[in-house]
Structure formats: C-alpha cells, structure tokens
Write a protein that binds this DNA or RNA. Structure first.
Length: 353
DNA sequence: AAGCCGTGGGT
DNA sequence: TACCCAAGGCT
C-alpha cells in the first residue's frame, strides 16, 4: 500500500538518498554550532535558502556568538535584517539571545520544551535545532516536510488546516528515527526543496516513489490541497522624503510592533495634500521650500498591497524643529547609520541623488 | 483560531 | 500581470 512503509524502511530509503544527493555544503552546515543552527533556522522561516545565505554570512560575521548578539544594539540587529522581512524574527532573536545568556549560561538548551520557551521558536524550529544541532531525536514539520508527507500519504487537505496539521505531525513523529536524527531531518527538507517541489516534482528521482500515494494517483500535484484564496486589499499613501540642504533625510522610528516594527521609516502621509505643508510644520517643525512627486510604486505585504506615491521635499528647520531624538534621525546618505530600514524605504533612499 | 507579519523567486 | 507560497510563530 502506498504511504504505509514501516519507519525502518522509510528511514533507510531517505537516508541512502541523502548520502548520495543530500545538501551538505550550506553555510550553516559548516562549523556547525547550536548558535549557527538557531540563527539559520530563524532566518529560514518562510524564507528561501538562496535569499537567506548572504544574510546569514553577514549576520554571523558581525555576531559570531550568542554573547555578541546579546550585547548588540537593537538598531544594529535590525540593520542586518534589512530586506529580509518578518522583522519580529530579528527582535525575538535578539531578545532570546539575552535570555540564553542570562538563563542558560550562554548555551542553547537541547530540549524542545526549553527551546520553545524562547521567543520565535515554535514546535518545528525547536525540533530542527534539537535534531540538527544536537543530533538528538526531535521532529520537524516545515513546508517541505508537509509537502513530502502529504504526497507520500495522499493527504489532500490544505496543509494549514487543523485536520491536516494534526495528521501530518503524527506522520512526522511516526517516521522520525531515534538515531541519525541530523541527516534524517536534513534529508526530509532536501527532498521537499529539490525533488518533491511545489510545481515540478521530480518523481523519477525520488527514493519514495514506489510507495508514494500521490505518485500512484497519477497526478502528484493534487497533493497537498490548495490554500483557500482570498484577495488582499490595496492601501494607498505617501512616503515623505524630507531633505535638508545638507542632503540629510528625515526618518522616524516605527512603533515596536506591527508593520515594519522597530525599523526607521520615511514619514507616511495619508491626509489631504493641501494640508501637507502645514502638517510638516506642525508635526516636525519643518518648512517645505519646494516639493515634487516621484514615481509611484506598489509594495506588497503578506496581507495587503501598499501603493506608495513618494513625495520629495526640500525643507529647512523652523524654530521648534526636531533635530534628533529617540524617535527621529536625519539619515546621511554619505555615511548611512547602521539601522533597520524597510525595503521600499531603502530603495527610495538609494535612489536619491 | 483566523489574522498579522515582508520580501523575493518562480511561473 | 498577478498569483502562489517559501526551513513559521504569535496573538
């Protein structure tokens, strides 16, 4: 019967494949430490390997140890996360580093239970750290494993549904070996990433082909089921590039939670453009001398589109101007401060001459 | 328990 | 273009 191998045979099949074809040269697989594994796992949440690699290299160079991260400035951490998205991951990573130093003697815990007490580490990430960093038995269930197991067992529900999640966790636990935990975890992700891909699975090269329910069905793309789609709304607004004669541009700190939390952003202006001059004067103590509209752009978040019309304005300080505070900085394009910037803000700043 | 949270790759 | 969705977690 498809989808019903014994754990021993299942493990044997995928581990043999791993020896020949598994990934062994990823940056976080070199100089393997629990800290490096942890950082990589956080960066890899909802993010593709090719995107993560340069961020990982950079981050580890600046913060080679958990102690270094714990002692870091928040702005520096966010700076190294600029463009990677899901910035709560960076805030939680920093917070967790401080907890690891203060509560765990600077050593990452080797149990899923303790790891899950740290912010940003859920069930799957905890399993990945325990199995990969410590080579101890623990189960992961990320997007790759969900897809592999859904096809193998012929589960046609969307993997995000509670029913499918429960079933998939059970299957994942069932097939997790007591030994060879590190290569087993890696191969399950490798299969999902390189063989059992979303749109073009290479079933002819899959070690599970002969016992795969989706392959037996004739159309593996029917598994897993699709996520129920919903159209995301469009929001419109302006981002203000307020520039002094010195070239410096005004940035304000985003609230600690929510979109772009903890990053430095261009002021957003949603109001009536006729009031723009007065608002700039009132909010920031800045007098607009001349202004122009820049080309509009669409930035898409996970749950809405943001149609941005940037406005560039040359400004001078008025009497009650804000020069510098914990909430505002002047961004010097010549010697840019190391702070976290949202992607479109960074793009706009780079485009100013 | 759905909605919130980014950005980029692939098609 | 527009759409799907990535090595998910938190509330």
């Amino acid at each position: 019967m498809p989808g019903s191998l014994s754990p021993a045979l299942f493990q044997q099949a995928v581990l043999a494949w791993y020896d020949d074809y598994g990934r062994k040269n990823l940056p976080w697989q070199q100089n393997l430490t629990a800290y490096r594994v942890w950082v990589s796992e956080i960066m890899l949440q909802q993010t593709q390997v090719t995107t993560v690699i340069p961020y990982f290299e950079n981050f580890i160079l600046v913060f080679p140890t958990v102690e270094a991260l714990a002692l870091a400035e928040s702005d520096e951490v966010m700076h190294l996360w600029t463009g990677l998205g899901y910035y709560s991951r960076a805030r939680n990573l920093h917070k967790a580093a401080k907890m690891i130093v203060s509560q765990f003697g600077s050593q990452l815990p080797d149990s899923t239970e303790l790891l899950m007490t740290l912010p940003g580490i859920g069930r799957s990430t905890a399993g990945a750290i325990v199995s990969t960093a410590f080579n101890q038995r623990a189960t992961i269930l990320d997007g790759n494993v969900k897809r592999v197991l859904s096809r193998y067992a012929g589960i046609s529900d969307w993997t995000g549904s509670k029913k499918a999640e429960t079933q998939l966790w059970e299957l994942a636990e069932f097939y997790t070996p007591a030994v060879n935990c590190r290569p087993y975890t890696q191969v399950m992700m490798d299969l999902g990433a390189t063989i059992c891909t979303r749109t073009k699975p290479r079933c002819e090269a899959c070690p599970l082909q002969v016992s795969c329910a989706a392959f037996a069905s004739g159309n593996p793309l029917n598994f897993p089921g699709k996520k129920p789609k919903k159209t995301i709304p469009v929001r419109k607004g302006h981002l203000l590039l307020l520039q002094l004669a010195t070239g410096a541009i005004f940035l304000e700190k985003r609230p600690p939670v929510g979109i772009w939390g903890g990053l430095w952003s261009l002021p957003a202006y949603e109001g009536n453009l006729e009031n723009l001059t007065a608002e700039c004067q009132h909010r920031y103590g800045l007098v607009i001398e001349k202004m122009c509209f820049l080309d509009s752009l669409r930035h898409t978040f996970s749950h809405f589109h943001y149609d941005i019309t940037p406005i560039h304005a040359t400004v001078v300080h008025s009497e009650q101007a804000i020069y510098e505070s914990s909430e505002h900085i002047w961004y010097d394009l010549e010697s840019p401060p190391r702070v976290g910037l949202p992607r479109p803000v960074k793009t706009l700043l780079m485009g100013i001459n």
